[in-house]
């Protein structure tokens, strides 16, 4: 059993045993987009800041990316998810700029979390789509994942095959795609994260997250931004037992992109 920190030992923000974050990381500006109905925008921004970077709030109706180096489309229910999850958000003016920046020469890193993943599929930056969970219910739980591809812009801190635990919470989280697309994703190692220890929602091939061919655009259904801070994270960790809500496996998703951009 891992050492259990007493209250006195519990750091307020991050694990004090970790080496201090590289000061250059603070120069990396990561945009966090707010659509009407976005919910986890402040959480994603907090995760970027805890990882050592600088979060920049972006408003869906603006035309300007404000010179950010990477973009996160956070979770939530944009436009209530009333038509299809992500279906309306993808028409936002800012989405055009994001699609251009992600597809352009620079290949700007983009991470879509949950609803953001759904927006990326509706915007055709990533293949496939999300339908209602198999159980037809909202599911909130700590979820074990395997990092399948550690080469993407958002996974450099992990090693391929590493297991992590981050919270999963959604209503429409079942990833579906036609067989040809699934075969392609598998053949090209574009399944970025896979559910392990049980498929929570019926996703094809246990897919939790995928990437585009260049590895800069990643969509991930579970929420790494909710496992970044001891005391407010997951109850579990891929590395073993941790104290109540001390699981911070998600933090390295954000550190990864900062390191990639300072390299």
């Amino acid at each position: 059993m891992a050492q259990h920190l007493t209250a006195e030992q519990t750091p307020l923000v991050a694990d004090l045993d970790q080496p201090a974050p590289d000061a250059r990381l603070a120069d990396v500006r990561v945009g966090v987009v707010t659509f009407p109905g976005t919910l986890d925008d402040r959480d994603a921004a907090r995760a970027v800041d805890i990882a050592g970077g600088t979060s920049v709030p972006l408003w869906y109706a603006d035309e300007d990316l404000q010179g950010v180096d990477a973009v996160i489309l956070p979770g939530g229910f944009s436009y209530g998810d009333y038509l299809r999850a992500g279906a309306i958000a993808r028409f936002a003016p800012l989405m055009g700029r994001i699609v251009d920046a992600a597809s352009g020469d620079g290949g700007m890193p983009v991470l879509g979390i949950c609803n953001g993943f759904q927006v990326l599929t509706e915007a055709h930056l990533l293949p496939g789509s999300m339908i209602k969970n198999e159980q037809l219910k909202f599911i909130c739980r700590d979820q074990r994942l395997r990092v399948e591809n550690a080469e993407t812009s958002w996974a450099g801190r992990f090693t391929a095959g590493q297991e992590i635990v981050v919270p999963l919470k959604n209503q429409d989280g079942q990833y579906v795609a036609d067989q040809r697309t699934l075969d392609e994703l598998e053949a090209e190692h574009r399944v970025a994260f896979r559910y392990v220890g049980g498929n929570p929602n019926g996703s094809r091939n246990d897919i939790a997250g995928i990437t585009n061919a260049r590895g800069n655009v990643v969509g991930l259904m579970p929420h790494p931004e909710h496992a970044v801070e001891p005391g407010f994270g997951a109850d579990l960790s891929g590395a073993g037992t941790v104290g109540m809500r001390e699981g911070t496996d998600g933090l390295d998703v954000f550190v990864s992109v900062l390191e990639r951009l300072t390299r």
């Binding site: 436009y79 209530g80 009333y82 038509l83 309306i88 028409f91």
Partner: peptide
Amino acid sequence: DPQGKAIANELPRI
């Protein structure tokens, strides 16, 4: 009908 309302608001924007 919140669904219809959300879609109706988006149509003119596209």
